[in-house]
Design a protein around this nucleic acid. Structure first.
Lengths: 242, 242
DNA sequence: TATTCCTATTTGTAGGACAAATATAATAAT
DNA sequence: ATTATTATATTTGTCCTACAAATAGGAATA
């Protein structure tokens, strides 16, 4: 049992205990707020040393599944489905290909929520977007341009009201800014190409589409970005296959 | 230092060691495959007991950041950005609202990749989709209908070639099927409404759009689903605010 | 030179000890 | 009788030691 391996990694006692705890939580249908037995009890029940149990608990704690207030013991919590991404969503930990995948992911998502945004957007939202865009123009080529960029897209995600989507955007933001910065030079030739066709997209353009209620034009403009990243990404993919 | 709290949770030594290890990995710019010092060395260097260090390492191991082949010591690995989602992406661990958020997230993403799909799809892809759709029709109201449903959407995600998107779809699939099943009755009235307008969407319809190359029609049909979920989800959100 | 064996190293597991924090019960004060 | 204080017990967090299992690398042998 001990030398069972998955992905060439041994399945340790900690792995098994972790799985059993998850199973326990699910089958007992415990709700957030439900107390967990204390460590000694659990360790004895599972027949393992407290250290092993604590390692497993530590993992679940990291995922936000359990919260431990000293003395009251542990209580269950609803985890954030994206919480596990937080630690590894870092440009320094992921490969180039993964980073570009995430960039493409984000553009796809933003494209995908456009119809929802057009349905839900209010006058107040549009006013806020106008302020953000104006600041962005003033601050162009400035260090605060990035902040404006982030604010604009954040606002769009907010309009959906979907907390998971909002959180996703927040978590991957460091990756997006890093990748855009790193591959700026690579995107340039494609950008110039598009500039000739007058297809370069600014936030002001997007906002204009929103105001006139032209979803299709909005989508076309966003799709431009998708195209740029997609072309570059496909080249990278081909290279990495060799 | 020890009674520092974040989110009302004490910041333990393990938390600090975990953060330091991550910092170490990032600043040393270690690549996948790079060896890590052994446990004793690390524990001494960080001035903590081996047990504490092991708890932190256990977390990183779960995230897929380090791999530990017995005796060769630990080596770094490229984590999957979505790996942390695996354990908590479960209908039994998340709230209704979160589950519905994920459903909406999926529809948005699928809507977002449509232009990319239309650009990249090949004749062979279309043939495969035809087979899947045919099987789906035959197996309608059958337990295998779910498998066909999954196969169809999986194939679409595959066409993007984006591994992160593909993995995302795989991980959240249990949630999607669960939520669709659980709220089937709630979606029905809205569905009937749409049926009157002849706006019910089948895989065959989508495939037809793909064949004729009509992206906008394809998007409209997908957007129908978005609308259904969005309406229902917004009601739920209002209720939960009270 | 190739093979076998031994030793040292490293991770995985067990178990004990104690500090810090706090919930609960017991005691004292008004 | 009610409130304030103190003491005790419980629980998590941390450290330490010991040892088993596996294996890498070198030593001994054929």
């Amino acid at each position: 049992m001990k030398d069972l391996k998955i992905n060439n990694q041994p399945v340790t006692l900690v792995d098994q205990v972790e799985a059993k705890l998850l199973e326990y939580i699910k089958t007992e249908d415990l709700n957030p707020g439900s107390p967990m037995p204390n460590e000694q009890t659990l360790a004895k029940a599972l027949g393992v040393a407290r250290g092993v149990l604590r390692e497993a608990l530590s993992r679940l704690r990291m995922l936000g599944l359990i919260e431990t207030r000293t003395q009251r013991g542990m209580v269950l919590k609803e985890p954030s489905i994206l919480g596990g991404m937080l630690r590894v969503a870092d440009p320094l930990l992921l490969s180039e290909l993964s980073l570009l995948d995430v960039l493409e992911f984000r553009v796809a998502l933003e494209l995908g929520i456009s119809s929802d945004i057009f349905r839900k957007i209010t006058k107040k939202d549009i006013e806020e977007l106008e302020v953000i865009v104006e600041k962005g123009i003033i601050l162009e080529h400035n260090e605060y341009a990035l902040a404006s960029e982030y604010a604009f897209h954040s606002k769009l995600y907010e309009i959906t009201g979907n907390q998971t989507i909002i959180q996703f955007q927040k978590i991957i933001n460091p990756i997006i800014t890093f990748v855009k910065d790193k591959f700026e030079e690579n995107f340039k030739p494609i950008n110039i190409e598009l500039e000739k066709e007058n297809r370069i997209v600014t936030h002001a353009d997007l906002l204009e589409c929103i105001k006139t209620g032209d979803v299709n034009a909005y989508r076309d403009k966003l799709d431009c970005h998708f195209l740029i990243y997609s072309i570059f990404l496909n080249e990278k993919r081909k290279l990495s296959k060799k």
